[in-house]
């Protein structure tokens, strides 16, 4: 399947890449455009040109916060945010390491934490992410301020994850079947 079609299919056809007429309104409103190697409009154009490697290895797809400003403002209803999400899925499926390492670590740790209790324990997810990305020490003073204000709960016993693990296993079985 051509790269563009793959992106479109994974986004549930929300990312209508071929309708993009490169007005760059998405890039203009994106809060992270100045930090991206490919700005949202360039990501859209690269997808159309089949520049698969460039897109899947970009920092842009991992820096995207999913804020939806681009999708909200696109005059062509192209939904670049959905294309960014589809590109993240394809990159992981191909075994391409997220080019913004911290974000890949965070997303993985997040879902792993859900498997314990169905819900996440926010302080554990933050702590583990910060530990694995070498930011733990800097984050301790703030963590302590939150503890004394009662905004950090002790981690719950991992007893409530059964319903999520069942769902997760059903998803895995379904995806293998495809």
């Amino acid at each position: 399947m051509a790269f563009r079609h793959e992106i479109e299919a994974l986004s549930g056809h929300a990312a209508r890449v071929n309708l993009c007429f490169q007005c760059s309104k998405c890039s203009a409103g994106c809060p992270l455009a100045d930090k991206m190697d490919l700005q949202p409009a360039q990501v859209m154009h690269s997808i159309r040109l089949g520049r698969e490697e460039a897109v899947l290895n970009s920092r842009a797809i991992w820096l995207c916060l999913g804020c939806e400003t681009c999708s909200a403002r696109c005059p062509q209803q192209v939904e670049p945010a959905a294309a960014m999400n589809a590109a993240r899925i394809i990159a992981l499926r191909r075994g391409i390491k997220p080019s913004v390492k911290e974000i890949g670590v965070y997303y993985r740790g997040f879902v792993d934490n859900m498997r314990l209790n169905g819900k996440i324990h926010d302080a554990s997810v933050a702590g583990i992410t910060q530990l694995l990305t070498g930011q733990l020490i800097e984050s301790l003073p703030l963590a302590w301020k939150l503890v004394v204000r009662g905004r950090v709960k002790p981690p719950p016993l991992p007893l409530g994850g059964g319903r999520f693990r069942r769902l997760y296993n059903n998803v895995l079985a379904k995806e293998k079947g495809h």
Partner: peptide
């Protein structure tokens, strides 16, 4: 009762089906 996390951007980044099933649970 028994609610689970919505999955935020993490679940859909790992799998589109998981990204739909988690909130829809």
């Amino acid at each position: 009762p028994d609610w689970i996390c919505c999955g935020t951007l993490a679940a859909p980044s790992l799998s589109p089906l998981l990204g739909l099933a988690t909130p829809l649970w």
